[in-house]
Design a protein around this nucleic acid. Structure first.
Length: 304
DNA sequence: AATGAAGGCAACCGCAGAAGG
DNA sequence: GCCTTCTGCGGTTGCCTTCAT
């Protein structure tokens, strides 16, 4: 298990690759295969360590790499798999042909993770966050919304974009979910993808078209209670009839975080008993809140 | 138009496991 | 069984670009 001396060698170039280096590496591998990464740089005439060459090849030069924006389907697949596997980027990447683990990792860290947080989900558990301070931005937004709803006649409540200065993120999200869901816009699809996370029905077909996801969203998203502690609910006056953003599936609400382990033990037949061996959620084995993920996929079953 | 902030992405670092001697 | 080497993975960093003021 010793450390590779490769990176300790001095005099080797680091940093961005030049087109000439890329060309050398590409030519060599196309002609000879990569063989031993350690010896490759010398044989290819590159002043780089083998590790750097391997990284450059796997993340950038490989001919089967798909570049450009992630599709909605890819996005949803990442969300699904991450909810099961955690930060197993290489494992997730095997389900996204042409995408590298590095790319997926970057996409997660720069887009999906932030979006989950913004919507009040814990990016590691994929569940609504229950700690008060974590949910504070959402609470502020909801308070503003509540004021607005109180000011509007019942039944005519319509979320206004940019209703308040401190409300932007959550209000925008709410607005995105509530008012753009039918428009087939990108926020719609994003919200649908996220909503599908907490919707058992929505996860059964990861390749469902976006329009179907929108329908799912419209049918399943409800607003019965806030995803925060009960004290917080009471303190801010969020009773059952008030606004909640994140309870998004048809009828049954997500079990609270504290009940996760119990849910696995107490409901062995309801589909939530499957435990994931992923690295998040405190190690005790996270029960899946949705019944089936790629149920027949041997890849998934390996991790369950 | 200039400048600072934020976002996005490529690449590096260090650890862990597998393989081979 | 032990040690060394190699490969792969995940976390993190730093640079470059884009956006906002």
């Amino acid at each position: 298990m010793g450390r590779s001396p490769c990176c300790d060698e001095s005099g080797l170039k680091k940093g961005p690759w030049t087109p000439e280096e890329d060309e050398k590496l590409l030519q060599y591998i196309q002609k000879n295969g990569h063989g031993s990464w350690r010896t490759l740089p010398r044989l290819a005439g590159l002043n780089r360590c083998g590790k750097s060459c391997r990284l450059r090849w796997t993340n950038y030069l490989r001919p089967d790499i798909k570049r450009g924006k992630f599709s909605q389907e890819e996005e949803q697949t990442i969300l699904h798999l991450h909810s099961i596997l955690g930060n197993k980027w290489s494992a997730i990447a095997t389900h996204l042909p042409g995408r590298t683990d590095n790319e997926i990792k970057n996409f997660w860290n720069t887009h999906l993770k932030k979006r989950l947080i913004q919507m009040g989900f814990d990016p590691m558990t994929h569940r609504p966050r229950t700690d008060f301070f974590a949910a504070l931005p959402q609470l502020i937004a909801l308070a503003a919304l509540r004021d607005q709803l109180a000011a509007d006649p019942p039944g005519s409540a319509q979320l206004q974009p940019g209703a308040g200065a401190g409300v932007d993120s959550a209000a925008t999200t709410i607005d995105g979910i509530a008012s753009t869901a039918a428009a087939g816009s990108t926020p719609d699809a994003e919200a649908a993808a996220l909503c599908a996370l907490c919707s058992p029905q929505g996860t059964q077909d990861s390749t469902a078209p976006v329009s179907a996801a929108s329908d799912q969203l419209l049918r399943s998203c409800t607003f019965p209670e806030a995803p925060v502690s009960s004290e917080a609910n009471q303190g801010l006056g969020y009773g059952g009839a008030d606004v909640d953003v994140f309870t998004c599936h048809g009828g049954a609400s997500l079990p609270p975080l504290a009940d996760l382990s119990d849910a696995a033990n107490n409901h062995p037949a309801d589909g939530c008993s499957a435990t994931a061996s992923s690295s998040f959620g405190g190690g005790a084995g996270s029960p899946l809140p949705w019944p089936e993920f790629f149920p027949d996929d041997p890849f998934i079953t390996d991790f369950l």
